[in-house]
Design a protein around this nucleic acid. Structure first.
Lengths: 141, 141
DNA sequence: ACAGCGAATTAGACAGAGTCCATATTTTGG
DNA sequence: CCAAAATATGGACTCTGTCTAATTCGCTGT
């Protein structure tokens, strides 16, 4: 459970109803072994540095498949690109607007009070909190 | 204060240190008179349906200028485009992922508890809460 | 009215993310 | 080992947004 190997990845994919192909395993491995937020082009660079060559179309197809099967999550904070997050547990993010760095905030202990009721006929898909930060004076004590 | 006219816009722009030109007034008017969240291409369509013709470059230049001068806010929820929000007061959003519709949530009464301390050397730029919703069973009681 | 000047605007080329499609390759089951 | 189904591929394409060099606008002072 702790260590991510390519074998684990195959099992993980199967558990999510995804046929494990080489490319899919590589892409999953890139995300899960790093436990980082990566963009599609970063993933493509990582994957193509290793074994197989993988096309842009496949990277996008695969990431969207993973999203659909809820294997990963997307984080939309940057107007230019989507980040993919291997952590699907409920959590929030710090986003450093000057460096583009994205950091997890454990949702444990974070509560939001006073949200209005949902409009009729809709259900919640998820609640994201994004704390946008930038370099500045030292944090207050 | 309640009604938005093109004359108001000129004053508003001047108050924010922006030289009021025809194009800028039209763009500001498009956003403020509607009090809606619009994307750059929607704004371009609106503005060019009216009086003057305005180029794509000007629309983007102007929106970025407005952002810089804190006349408007950007809302990043859709991977494909940025929405511009004439409401700069602290508030949050419902985002209907199937229709793309964006609705304000008054920040009054909404509190977030339990956020961890900021990393050192950074300051908060803003906190966004996005409640992603989609059509489904009626809202729970 | 008009010359001159800086600021604003323009068209169009460009860049990057992401999609689409028709073809090729791989995988699977028999 | 073969055929069918699923997957992967390259390349063209779309869309949002940026850049640049050239033009035009709107002002000032005369």
């Amino acid at each position: 459970m702790q260590q991510y190997s390519r074998d684990n990845m195959a099992d993980l994919l199967r558990r999510h109803d995804i046929n494990p192909t080489h490319q899919r395993i590589e892409i999953a491995y890139a995300l899960f072994s790093r436990q980082q937020h990566l963009s599609a082009d970063q993933i493509m660079a990582i994957v193509n540095d290793r074994h197989s060559e993988t096309s842009k179309a496949t990277v996008y197809n695969t990431l969207n498949l993973f999203l659909e099967k809820k294997l990963i999550r997307e984080v939309i904070v940057d107007p230019n690109k989507v980040f993919y997050d291997p952590n699907t547990q409920l959590h929030h993010h710090f986003y450093n607007v000057s460096s583009g760095e994205l950091t997890d905030i454990d949702a444990e202990g974070v509560t939001i009070c006073g949200l209005p009721q949902l409009p009729d006929g809709v259900v919640t898909e998820g609640v994201d909190i994004i704390v946008r930060i930038r370099p500045g004076a030292a944090a207050q004590a």
